[in-house]
Design a protein around this nucleic acid. Structure first.
Length: 959
RNA sequence: GCAGGGGUGGCAGAGCCUGGCCAAAUGCGACGGGCUUAGGACCCGUUCCCUUUAGUGGGUGCGAGAGUUCAAAUCUCUCCCCCUGCACCA
């Protein structure tokens, strides 16, 4: 049994004692490998481990490949979540406290102090650092910092000064989710149930009241249906406000006033009952038709404007409302349900492109194609009296199908695809002041702030943005991107797309921990914006610390000089009071480490962190220091499920390490998936890894029992496997394909070693060499176990500081593996023959006495390859010099049917094959409990001899 | 809706770029056997269907359909479905 806990402590101490992970600039090529620093509002859990162990393993690998690798770490404390959590703890939020105790295992007395956000952050920073050490991450802790350290803030201020000078900071308006009670922006983690508020733009089309100068603004997503409007719907049981918006008077539900007043200037000048509005008529701004105002059962005062336009031909709710009104005896004026959108001929019938599951599986008959809204209800075997959820589904179906295949059948865009017409009409209406754009929270259910207030949309003015939409900036990034290696490379199209997509990004917030925003110091710099080029800070943070450089001394000219080579070192020294030698040291360190970088993070950060990382580097740094490599990795599943607190499977990493050991966890989160796939973390994987480790341990212990002897075929085979393994694994690791690499290094080695022993292999020298190189290659993924094995193998050095093995190419390729494959396949054939012959009546009750294995003559191999090349029997025959043409042509005709697919085989001499088989006699004989004879075709007297084929010896079983 | 990534055997997951050695690696599961007091672990074999008394032969098959080719999981087109992201939030 391997005692993982003891072993981990032992080797972690050995690494620390030898400063294995505290590199300094040197003559060796340097590499700065960074991973997204953790946001410390909770402990590190298994999900983090994927990125961390992957990155550490890569760092260890590159170190063994001869790079001087720096792997630093810091802690992210910027922003609101830490604040929010502290606030909830201070307010004794029972649910959260429960999570802290049960899931995070935080002691009660600590929770009591966590009402202080700084205390909370520091607690989890300490906890996370301890966890990382326990996981064996090879981090240079001398460089640690947090994003609220005053020195780091100076660095961030400098960066924003740069961006400002470059003209990349702009001010403007911006829609955000908003809580009117807290008076602050609301993101996903600020809401009840962690719902991300979805902000959508809607259009409100103004219909003028015929009796006054007041307008009915009708909220809609489908302005193109304006041609089919028959009436308006209001909620007759609610009260509407009369408001002025700009120079227009409008009706708005009272709820809408509250929601919209945070977006546009709305002044309430009066109010009117919904029932009163029913007496009015309104003018369609496009068709100029006068339409009545009717009561709509489904009109919700808190959605949109509280007024909708009715298009019964295309909107199932409108259709249902009108039909029900008529049925109730309400005086509905006669009207035409005008169809204004046709389905494109290609799409065929209504409902054809809709998946039945979208319609609850029902497939009713369409009786009224001339009224699509009804037709989609009919598809679901429903009508105007359907339940709301059925109408809802019909609405989605018609929206989907018409958006995709619809063609305008009315109005000035007649003949155009609906989707296109929608945008054109929207633009027309807004341009003509006949509609306004409004924002709504588009979630299906209302979203509430944690304080209980419903979240609305606010359009923030005077908001500062980083203008990632800047054309020149984008151009620079586009030029730089091809020089950045992206792993996995298939993500490149995503990055190319994101470079175009990235636009204005709000960069300051009213609340949270962090660095004050220089252009508005009452706000702080938003948390992702301060984490774009922070890796630079690692390259000299240790120098600043050890020389006690204060924040005040870190004036912009310091960073200008150190990072951008601007200005004069002497002058910087005198203006900042920092020793010139220290400044120079910082500069050299930056230039050394930043020449070669690799930035790693979960793929979930692709469209924010990674893309901003690229932009900000390109903006601030000289081309020499632009990103060299970025590595987004897939996430981690726990027993096949996403990790989430609600499922209760967010396991803090420290307790997992206690339970399973660091290396098995590292290995199963790293070596079971390549970059682009999600890792499935399973207990069964961990157990099997532990068992395999024990097999290796036992094999090392058994080395003493093995002998030094002359090398035979199976030894060469193992050598060949070993060396090709090194080659394959190295190639895979160069693209961070850990799964492929460790399939080779780990799992295949197990299989091969077992086969080697099975086949009677027991050469001490061969096995020892295999184990040594195996152990070295195990180093990156299972560092502690590798050190232990290395030690058991009698070594006194550290794997962490050793060189990665190089393949001995003279030992690979050739014919050894082909020969061994032939032996294996031959045994399969023997199995088959034994089974078949055993059933023959003559052999009943007997057992086989001898198995003859007859190896094909060399001329057959030549003939076979000639045929594979020429794809023609007579041409192949012409190639053969010494063979008996008649026999040869007979032989070749066997393959006539496969002639096109025939491929050349590795030629193995008959002598060599026969020798390998001879060496395997004892193994084969033991397996079949018979005598074995190995013969060459030319020397064999067996009548089956001529059946021997290259790579497929003839078999004769004698009973 | 827009964009990106996918759809492979009971499950997970390779292969697809560079078409043929692919009934498709590997792992798990299941079944049969060995080992064992028993279980676990371990070892051997089987695991799409049919067929086979000398080491097979045939059918079906990689989301659906069509195409290119002597040959398609792999290339082209169309369609269906799934996942992720769509921002100011870590």
């Amino acid at each position: 049994m391997i005692a993982y806990d003891e072993l981990e402590k032992k080797w972690q101490k050995a690494w620390a004692d030898s400063n294995a992970f505290e590199p300094e600039p040197s003559d060796k090529p340097g590499m700065l490998i960074t991973f997204a620093f953790p946001y410390v509002n909770s402990p590190m859990h298994a999900g983090h481990m994927k990125t961390y162990s992957l990155t550490d393993s890569y760092a260890r690998y590159m170190r063994m490949r001869g790079y001087n690798v720096l792997l630093p770490m810091g802690f992210h404390m910027t922003g609101t979540p830490i604040l929010g959590m502290a606030k909830r703890l201070a307010a004794n939020d029972a649910e959260l406290i429960d999570d802290f105790i049960k899931v995070y295992a935080v002691p009660k007395e600590e929770i009591a102090k966590m009402g202080d956000p700084l205390y909370l952050a520091k607690y989890f920073a300490v906890d996370t650092e301890a966890g990382m050490k326990e996981a064996g991450l090879g981090i240079d802790w001398r460089r640690k910092f947090t994003t609220i350290d005053p020195q780091f803030s100076k660095f961030i201020e400098w960066q924003f000064g740069k961006l400002n000078k470059l003209g990349f900071l702009t001010q403007g308006t911006h829609p955000v989710g908003w809580c009117t009670t807290d008076n602050s922006a609301v993101g996903g983690h600020d809401t009840k149930g962690d719902i991300q508020p979805k902000i959508e733009e809607m259009i409100a089309i103004k219909f003028k009241d015929t009796q006054s100068d007041v307008y009915f603004p009708c909220g809609t997503y489908r302005p193109e249906t304006i041609y089919g409007v028959t009436n308006l719907f209001v909620n007759d049981k609610t009260t509407y406000a009369i408001v002025s918006i700009g120079k227009y008077q409008c009706y708005l539900s009272k709820e809408a006033v509250g929601m919209l007043s945070n977006q546009i200037k709305v002044d309430v000048t009066g109010e009117i009952q919904g029932s009163e509005l029913l007496k009015r008529k309104a003018v369609n701004p496009v068709t100029k038709e006068e339409v009545p105002v009717l009561p709509g059962f489904f009109v919700k005062p808190d959605v949109g404007t509280g007024i909708v336009m009715s298009v019964p031909a295309h909107a199932p709710f409108d259709y249902a409302a009108l039909e029900r009104l008529k049925a109730s005896g309400y005086p509905v004026p006669s009207m035409e349900y005008k169809k204004v959108i046709d389905l494109d001929g290609k799409a065929g019938a209504i409902g054809k492109s809709i998946d039945p599951s979208m319609l609850s599986g029902a497939k009713g008959k369409v009786e009224h194609p001339e009224i699509p809204a009804l037709a989609y209800l009919e598809l679901m075997n429903a009508n105007a009296n359907a339940m709301d959820d059925v109408i809802e589904r019909a609405t989605k179906a018609i929206y989907k199908e018409e958006s995709r295949y619809g063609v305008m059948a009315a109005g000035k865009y007649s003949g155009k695809p609906e989707a296109e017409a929608r945008e054109l009409i929207k633009k027309d209406l807004i341009g003509a002041n006949e509609a306004i754009a409004i924002y709504i929270i588009a979630n299906e259910e209302p979203v509430y702030c944690r304080c209980g207030t419903r979240v609305i949309v606010k359009v923030v003015s005077d908001q500062w943005f980083i203008n990632y939409g800047d054309k020149k900036w984008k151009e620079k990034v586009r030029k730089s991107l091809p020089k950045t290696r992206i792993l996995p490379e298939k993500l490149r199209p995503t990055f190319e797309y994101l470079v175009d997509w990235l636009d204005l990004r709000a960069t300051e917030r009213a609340h949270g921990l962090g660095t004050p925003f220089p252009l508005n110091p009452s706000h702080i710099i938003e948390s992702l914006s301060d984490s774009t080029i922070y890796m630079i800070f690692y390259t000299f943070s240790d120098i600043l610390n050890s020389n006690k450089v204060s924040a005040e001394q870190l004036k912009p000219e310091f960073f200008d000089y150190v990072i951008c080579s601007q200005g004069d070192g002497g002058k910087v020294a005198s203006s900042t009071g920092i020793d010139l030698s220290i400044i120079q040291k910082c500069k050299e360190s930056f230039e050394y480490w930043y020449a070669n970088t690799s930035n790693h993070s979960g793929a979930d950060l692709t469209n924010n962190h990674f893309i901003m990382y690229l932009f900000n580097h390109v903006a601030v740094l000289d081309e020499k220091y632009h990103p060299k490599q970025i590595v987004p990795n897939g996430l981690l599943l726990y027993e096949g499920q996403k990790m989430s607190k609600s499922i209760g499977n967010t396991m803090p990493i420290r307790s997992l390490i206690v339970k399973y050991g660091a290396d098995p966890i590292r290995f199963s989160s790293v070596a079971t998936a390549d970059l682009d796939t999600e890792t499935n973390f399973e207990e069964s994987t961990i157990n099997s890894v532990k068992q395999k480790n024990e097999f290796i341990e036992e094999t090392i212990e058994r080395l003493d029992e093995m002998l030094a002897a002359e090398l035979v075929h199976i030894d060469y085979w193992l050598y060949s496997k070993l060396n090709s393994k090194i080659q394959k694994a190295t190639a895979a690791l160069d693209t961070i394909s850990f799964r492929s690499a460790y399939n080779e290094i780990y799992y295949n080695t197990m299989t091969e070693l077992k086969w080697y022993f099975e086949r009677g292999g027991s050469n001490e020298m061969v096995v020892r060499e295999l184990l040594e190189k195996f152990t070295l290659m195990l180093g990156p993924a299972m560092p502690h176990v590798a050190e232990e094995f290395w030690h058991m193998l009698g070594k006194s050095t550290l794997v962490a500081k050793e060189k990665w093995p190089t393949p001995d190419k003279s030992m690979t390729g050739g014919t050894v593996e082909v020969v061994e494959d032939t032996i294996r396949k031959t045994m399969d054939d023997i199995d088959a023959v034994m089974e078949l012959t055993a059933r023959m009546p003559a052999n009943k009750g007997k057992s086989a006495s001898l198995i003859r294995i007859i190896i094909a003559d060399d001329w057959k191999t030549e003939a076979y390859n000639a045929l594979a090349e020429k794809k023609n029997i007579s041409k192949a025959l012409a190639e053969l010099k010494d063979a008996n043409k008649e026999t040869a042509s007979k032989f070749l005709s066997q393959f006539a049917s496969k002639i096109m697919t025939l491929e050349k085989i590795e030629p193995v001499r008959c002598d060599e094959m026969a020798k390998a088989f001879s060496q395997a006699i004892s193994y084969i004989s033991k397996r079949y409990k018979t005598s074995i004879a190995v013969e060459k075709e030319s020397e064999s007297k067996s009548q089956r001899a001529s059946r021997a084929v290259p790579g497929k010896p003839s078999i004769e079983v004698v009973w």
